[in-house]
Nucleic acid binder design. Structure first.
Length: 665
DNA sequence: GGCCAGAGCGCG
DNA sequence: AAAGCGCGCTCTGGCC
């Protein structure tokens, strides 16, 4: 198999991070500086500079230069595979800069492979430098070259001495070419160490590319309209907080100052989370303190920033592109980019109410709906719209994780409840309180719901408490919680058993190197990974598994399987390549999430394959598509999404949705 | 001004 | 005996 590995160095004034690849690529001042490539039939890599930059190169530079872009385009035709790290970047940059502007032929999509997607598929870090060190590569990423690239890829501040906008000194251009070549070598070596991705996964990656490429229509005018109404209130609220605190607190997000001011006014709090603020406001606090906390609630919302993020991401076609990343999580779930469609506030207005907010002035909105900051938050989903002559159609899987877990565990009683379409939260409460489910009151149902959400993966009392807090539910005493949890576990013996079975099977697999099965799940060791064969045929991976003595959360010591992973070390996205332990409940969670991701991917593929619907958005258990205006058969779409795949026989799936002009929950 | 970490937001 | 987990983004403040 002949393979071409490619890597581009580019520059442009659009912020790639906040505006995304598609907006970066379509910007007129974005350009490709150079392209390095390595043909597997050739001994060494080459670099090609686009016209302008080739002319700037110093005399007598020592790069293996290629003067004719025709050579590269001929190679596109000759090779079997064209690989890049984050190949979407190379694909889109080539299309915008080389194909559209320079009339070059497109890169043949069916030959393209992404080595970053491959690394992610094997649960390794996605970034080239991180995966390089994780795999101990011979050729590693060039840190000084990276720093230079970061300087050259964006506009510099012009000075009197040097008024140029771009950093493009001849020596640095030559140095950038060497960096680019080094990257291609690293990529080739890294990719060579990992087996090819199976065809099914390759197709999932291609589908992700197509959905990202299609994008999602934004109500650009609507966002401007709402931002104008919000900005005024935002400024006033900030001024008010400054006045109330006599200038000590300058914004609602100055946590330390805010805590100190509250303490000076007789209110001590550990933190200023939404829940703490709500609880504190329920207590008896002075009027000015209460007002400051109210303002914190209103300004603490993340929605305003999201409007801006949407504007930043919207391209000339009024659509946001590149919002999803296939296999963003080690379980195979997608993750989100830019405005992060995966975490829009659930509370959302429907089409009619959005039209009110857009048409009315602030005062009228506050009379008929709610405070403007809150109203804006409820409009966030609705700023995603169908284009003219189209509608959005959506379907959500109902309680997908609870169903998958019951299916994996063969918890027949629960499976039957799902098949009979019975109220499962009432039934969980019935098990806990030992009475018929039609005698369950509202509070008891809430407990049933929290148990269903919190306890399936070996969660203990703290899991129950955290989940209850998240849903604003007041729990009984700790002793009572323990009783509830015990009753829940006793009513689900197969689930409790599943945790133990997974843990034992993984311990045996890792210690002997021999495969072990639990139900429809197989564990095995392959290429230095612990691999979990899912019923769909997909595998998830854990790198360098071994058995270690680890300290449990309650201080005990225990032999556990540990593995290497990119571990989150804070909430800002910093990660560390680190060894972490796993246990039965966590394995049950990972596998459940992975199976649910497979169900979503299969549903996405069916929707993509249909002639009527085109997927534009998906969120773990939800598929939203564009359809011609006039479409009325919601059930047809729900059935398409809820179809049970061949590999998931007996798994009770249900999906329900809506049709509308604007996105909503 | 860029980088990093902590606190906080939100979702499934 | 006892373990929820999986993501990404913003703002602030300290450091270089």
């Amino acid at each position: 198999m002949r393979k071409l590995t490619i890597d581009f160095e580019t520059r442009g004034s659009v912020n790639l991070k906040t505006s995304g690849l598609f907006k970066y690529a379509e910007s007129p001042d974005t350009d490709i500086i150079c392209i390095s490539f390595k043909d597997s039939n050739a001994l060494s890599p080459c670099v090609y500079y686009t016209e302008k930059f080739a002319a700037l190169l110093p005399e007598g530079h020592r790069l293996p230069l290629v003067k004719d872009i025709g050579l590269l385009t001929r190679l596109f035709g000759l090779v079997d595979v064209i690989e890049a790290h984050n190949a979407t970047f190379e694909m889109i940059m080539w299309r915008e800069v080389m194909a559209k502007r320079r009339g070059m032929p497109d890169i043949p999509f069916n030959k393209v492979r992404c080595s970053a997607a491959k690394a992610a598929y094997y649960a390794l870090p996605r970034s080239l430098s991180d995966v390089g060190s994780a795999l101990n590569l011979n050729v590693q990423k060039d840190a000084a070259g990276y720093a230079l690239m970061m300087k050259m890829c964006k506009p510099r501040k012009p000075t009197l001495a040097d008024p140029s906008i771009w950093h493009e000194y001849p020596e640095d251009l030559a140095r950038l070419g060497r960096y680019c070549i080094r990257d291609v070598e690293t990529e080739e070596e890294m990719s060579g160490l990992l087996p090819d991705m199976p065809e099914r996964e390759l197709n999932s990656w291609r589908m992700d590319f197509n959905i990202n490429n299609r994008g999602l229509m934004v109500d650009v005018e609507g966002i401007k309209n709402i931002r104008a109404k919000v900005e005024d209130s935002e400024t006033k609220l900030i001024l008010e907080i400054q006045e109330l605190t006599k200038g000590f607190v300058k914004s609602a997000r100055q946590i330390d100052n805010l805590k100190r001011w509250l303490a000076d006014n007789g209110i001590d709090v550990d933190n200023l989370t939404k829940d703490t603020v709500t609880q504190t406001l329920k207590k008896d606090c002075p009027a000015d303190v209460a007002r400051v906390l109210e303002i914190r609630q209103l300004l603490g919302k993340s929605s305003v920033a999201k409007f801006e993020a949407m504007q930043d991401y919207t391209c000339q076609d009024n659509r946001m592109h590149g919002l999803f990343m296939w296999h963003g999580a080690t379980t195979g779930r997608f993750s989100g980019k830019g405005p992060q469609l995966q975490n829009y506030p659930r509370e959302s207005f429907k089409d009619r109410e959005i039209e009110d907010v857009l048409a009315w002035d602030k005062e009228t909105i506050e009379i008929w709906h709610c405070p403007i900051m809150q109203a804006a938050s409820k409009c966030l989903r609705g700023m995603i719209v169908a284009p003219e002559n189209k509608l959005l159609v959506a379907a959500d899987f109902e309680q997908i994780e609870a169903r998958v877990l019951a299916w994996l565990a063969r918890e027949e009683k629960v499976l039957q409840q799902f098949r009979d379409k019975l109220p499962i939260y009432e039934l969980a409460a019935a098990d806990i309180y030992g009475k018929p489910y039609n005698k369950i009151n509202k509070e008891e149902r809430q407990i049933g719901k929290v148990c269903t959400l919190a306890l399936g993966y070996q969660g203990w009392i703290s899991a129950l408490q955290n989940m209850a807090t998240a849903y604003g539910i007041v729990l009984p005493s700790e002793d009572e919680c323990k009783k509830i949890m015990t009753e829940w576990r006793m009513s689900r013996p197969a689930t409790v058993h599943l945790w133990k079975d997974y843990e034992e099977a993984v311990m045996k697999t890792v210690s002997t190197g021999q495969p072990h099965s639990v139900g429809c799940i197989k564990f095995g060791i392959q290429d230095g990974f612990l691999r979990v064969l899912l019923p769909s045929g997909r595998k998830i991976s854990y790198y360098q598994p071994r058995i270690d003595e680890v300290v449990t959360p309650y201080g005990g010591e225990k032999k556990s399987v540990t593995y290497m992973t990119q571990r989150a070390i804070n909430k800002a996205g910093s990660t560390k390549w680190d060894r972490v332990p796993t246990y039965g409940g966590k394995l049950a969670e990972n596998i459940t999430q992975a199976v649910a991701a497979d169900l979503l991917i299969d549903a996405l593929k069916r929707v993509e394959a249909s002639s009527k619907f085109k997927t534009v958005l998906h969120v773990h258990d939800e598929v939203v598509a564009e359809v011609d205006a006039g479409f009325k058969d919601l059930k047809e779409y729900e059935d398409l999404v809820a179809e049970v795949p061949e590999w998931a026989k007996g798994l009770p799936i249900a999906a329900s949705g809506w049709i509308g002009k604007r996105y909503r929950k």
